[in-house]
Design a protein around this nucleic acid. Structure first.
Length: 484
RNA sequence: GCCCGCAUCGUCUAGCGGUCAGGACCUCACCCUUUCAAGGUGGCAACCGGGGUUCGACUCCCCGUGCGGGUACCA
């Protein structure tokens, strides 16, 4: 496979969500899997929608996911700058070439006129497109521009048809008569996406334009610009959109979470990448869990689906749990620091074996470890004594446990376990029911981390203390049963 | 309205003319078990409709239908 040189070109109008980044991931994988290169470019040609913090957030998102770029902001490169607002002269130069060759023309039509025109076209069941009024009066338009009237530069869409062989969709064909004379330069002098993307992709030597499906309708415009400039067009790969549960394109506006929010919620970058890769791509084997390296080895654009995919949060959860379980121990200890900031590295090392199998997200560690790191107040809803365990057995169990801990400490918890099991059986109480007493006493809740491990963690003193407290609570509840 | 894309279990998907239509998530049951998990086993569950083409269509073609996207001096 020839090396693919591709790019991700977000606009700094907001934060990145799974939909955006899934496309970036495909581009990154295409580059990495072919030994090619990946370029990051910021498309900030819309001054009105610019959100200052978003640019930094985009870089942070990609860095967190380790979707490394070979050229772009911060790292530079031979085709820089990689921020479009810094490349205005380049667009102006190419716009001039387009005007000179007759591929573009100036237009001074007022927005109101354009709106009215489109309404009329819609009423007449016609395709919406500029009626080229200004094309036939270029001398007047020149004079108007001279006198300071605002103007835009339009692409003169040639007649005929446009088609291309999309890597993901196959042949797509358009009748040029359905395509508008796109604005290339806005009246503020900034280029539109359409001009800038073509100029930059060509100058930056992009071999594969990987972007999402919503760009399909504007590809003929881009192809026309390539042709007008005498350039060879890159391959186009239109990746299907990622949809939310209501089958709409994922968007911040509709409540899509940003990738950075997933990070805070305790999702692993590897899991997010795995989940995103599976949205629209499959290996063709039955492997579903992939490390970053495995993904690079298995990926190919040809196996990208052409139909949109609904994002499934359950799938992400499942994958996140799986990745946590297969994660290197020390890496997990380190990753947990963010969620358990008060803990020492040693504490986290002791915690990891207990937590690992029980976490869906890293954040789950907080609730899971709570009774080990601090006091363990009882869950207000806890039933005590637990169902199926009579008060006498509960008391006996607690008494034995206290005595064991006080006499022998926690060195032989297996012996204590056997002792307690024996006691429960002799009283006709199933171990699974009876041990709930211990869980409540130690953890404040009838379920959670393995209770003997928990006792070992908190130590002799606290274990004995919590057991005695439970014993007292039992007496208290027996003398004054809770109302209701 | 005009243009384009898409169509297999609830969801993500495998399939590339002949399969008991496979896997994963979700869900249910069971096993394991000191709880909860994890793990294991098994169950439920799908080819949008109608025409063709073909000895034979989930698979190819056409038409519907549905869903999505575009239709901006936003990207």
């Amino acid at each position: 496979m020839a090396p693919i040189r591709t790019r991700f070109a977000p606009s700094p109008t907001g934060f990145l969500h799974l939909g955006n980044v899934r496309t970036a991931l495909f581009a990154w994988l295409a580059a990495r899997s072919t030994g090619g290169s990946f370029v990051l470019r910021i498309e900030d040609t819309d001054q009105g929608r610019y959100v200052p913090e978003s640019e930094a957030a985009i870089l942070e998102t990609l860095q967190w996911l380790e979707l490394t770029w070979d050229e772009g902001p911060e790292v530079g490169g031979p085709q820089g700058p990689y921020i479009q607002s810094l490349r205005l002269d380049l667009y102006a130069e190419h716009a001039r070439r387009l005007v000179e060759s007759g591929a573009a023309y100036w237009c001074t039509c007022a927005p109101e006129r354009l709106t009215e025109m489109r309404l009329e076209q819609q009423r007449l069941h016609q395709p919406p497109r500029y009626d080229r009024r200004c094309l036939s009066r270029q001398d007047q338009v020149a004079a108007e521009r001279e006198s300071g009237m605002p103007a835009v530069l339009r692409l003169r869409m040639p007649a005929g048809t446009t088609e291309w062989d999309d890597v993901i969709h196959g042949l797509i064909r358009y009748d040029n008569a359905d395509i508008d004379d796109q604005v290339l330069l806005k009246s503020d002098g900034f280029p539109t996406y359409h001009l800038a993307v073509v100029v930059d992709d060509h100058l930056m030597g992009i071999s594969h334009v990987i972007r999402s499906d919503e760009w399909i309708p504007s590809t003929p415009k881009h192809l026309a610009i390539y042709a007008a400039l005498g350039w060879e067009a890159p391959r186009f790969c239109h990746a299907p959109n990622v949809l939310d549960e209501s089958r709409q394109k994922l968007s911040k506006r509709r409540g899509a979470r940003t990738v950075l929010e997933y990070a805070e919620l305790g999702y692993l970058p590897e899991a997010l990448i795995n989940a995103m890769a599976l949205l629209g791509w499959s290996s063709g084997t039955e492997q579903e869990v992939f490390s970053r390296e495995e993904l690079i080895a298995a990926f190919s654009l040809e196996r990208v689906q052409s139909s949109p995919a609904v994002f499934d949060a359950h799938r992400l959860d499942s994958l996140n749990g799986l990745h946590i379980r297969r994660m290197d121990g020390e890496a997990l200890v380190a990753a947990l620091e963010f969620h358990l900031p008060e803990t020492s590295i040693e504490t986290r090392r002791r915690l990891v074996p207990l937590l690992r199998e029980r976490m869906i997200t890293l954040r789950d560690a907080v609730a899971l470890a709570e009774p080990l790191l601090g006091p363990a107040p009882w869950d207000p809803d806890v039933v005590f004594p637990p169902r199926k365990v009579d008060p006498e057995t509960t008391g006996a169990l607690l008494d034995v446990a206290v005595a064991e801990v006080e006499a022998r400490g926690l060195d032989d918890l297996e012996a204590m376990r056997l002792r307690l099991t024996e006691l429960l059986e002799s009283r006709g109480v199933k171990a699974r029911d009876g041990f709930r007493v211990l869980y409540i006493a130690i953890l404040g809740h009838p379920s959670g981390l393995p209770v003997f491990d928990a006792m070992a963690f908190i130590g002799v003193e606290k274990s004995a203390e919590r057991l005695r407290m439970a014993r007292q609570e039992l007496d208290r509840r027996r003398s004054s049963p809770p109302a209701g």
